[in-house]
Design a protein around this nucleic acid. Structure first.
Lengths: 188, 188
DNA sequence: ATCAACCTGTGACATAAATCACAAAATGAA
DNA sequence: TTCATTTTGTGATTTATGTCACAGGTTGAT
């Protein structure tokens, strides 16, 4: 029972045995083939996923091109918070970038648990705060740095991203042309 | 008692009279002179502010230049969430951009209230979610749009920003040179 | 093993925005 | 009102990055 998920939950908030069990029993594991879609654009997001293995790719379509906004690797939680919260159709796709295993948390189930357990509501709050910080960092990545600096930043702070994600996919994530990434990579 | 603050709180979450009063009594009003600093870089952020009048400017120092990351106008909540949450020194300054009136919520007081009232914890969660969405939108502004497009986006969605914030301050917010903003402005 | 489909590297060229320099306009203090 | 200070506008020039075009490489299916 010392699962990756349990560790992931405890990295967000300290929970009592009881609260922890409530959460663990509200979720189920789901294996994913590479390319399998968890959330298509236009669908209302009703789930939070925890990545146990592989990675998920979040992207949207701009003029027919896929723009990646996030890669979620092992032990990360991911959702489309805006859609989840507002009930509006999602502007994003979420898809497995590799063969993957995720745990699914249904929004409605979580809301029920919040009502049952203050501890779990506190967990929910911590999870959101953490997502906020991740997002803030990523916003600043674009605000602060030029394309070349962004590559260096990611190489320094998220090296596995460069190893597991293809150059083309990376380029839209970094907000620059494929060719520019290729040239930056050459000069190192 | 139908204060701006009360309306601001209710725009985040529906609260019972009791919970609402608890929150309202945990805060105090603070008038600010133009330029007055609420949070200096390096200090741990322990407060969430609600802007009743005027606006607050959030910025950091990059190589001696001030880079604005946010302008918070009437009826908005603002803090440095990363510092608030982690207790790490803030990388940002928060300062009054005009003569202003704010309401201060001390972190410790809020945490006490969370323990006392599930409703207020729920309010806290909603507030964070809303901050997350605002941040996500702003991240996308940089990811999706070129400098020229960013100006157009802000003109369309946050017109008061162009009216109340000086061109120089705006330029760092939009991530472009002062001269570029001036030229864009000419061509409209 | 072969072949098609996709991914990556690289040159030539175009272009938006940055930088530099300075003039004009606006603001604010005495 | 006047003068100093700050902000904004604008031309000339430079530079980073994008776009286009195409040649190798890689990968995966049959």
């Amino acid at each position: 029972m010392t699962s990756s998920l349990e560790a992931g939950i405890h990295s967000i908030a300290e929970l009592s045995r009881g609260a922890s069990d409530l959460l663990l029993h509200s979720t189920r594991q789901k294996p994913l083939a590479k390319g399998q879609v968890l959330l298509p654009e236009g669908q209302v997001c009703k789930t939070i996923w925890y990545v146990e293995k592989g990675y998920l790719r979040t992207f949207y379509n701009k003029d027919g091109k896929e723009i990646n906004t996030r890669f979620s690797f092992e032990n990360e939680f991911v959702t489309d918070l805006k859609s989840l919260r507002s009930g509006a159709p999602s502007a994003f796709w979420i898809q497995a970038g590799e063969a993957a295993v995720v745990w699914e948390f249904a929004k409605e189930t979580l809301l029920d648990l919040y009502r049952q357990s203050a501890e779990i509501e506190s967990f929910g709050r911590n999870l959101l705060e953490q997502m906020l910080v991740v997002q803030e960092d990523h916003a600043n990545l674009f605000r602060i740095h030029s394309p070349t600096e962004r590559y260096a930043y990611v190489a320094r702070h998220f090296p596995q991203l460069l190893q597991r994600v293809s150059l083309s996919q990376l380029s839209s994530y970094l907000g620059m042309a494929r060719e520019t990434v290729s040239r930056i990579r050459k000069n190192r």
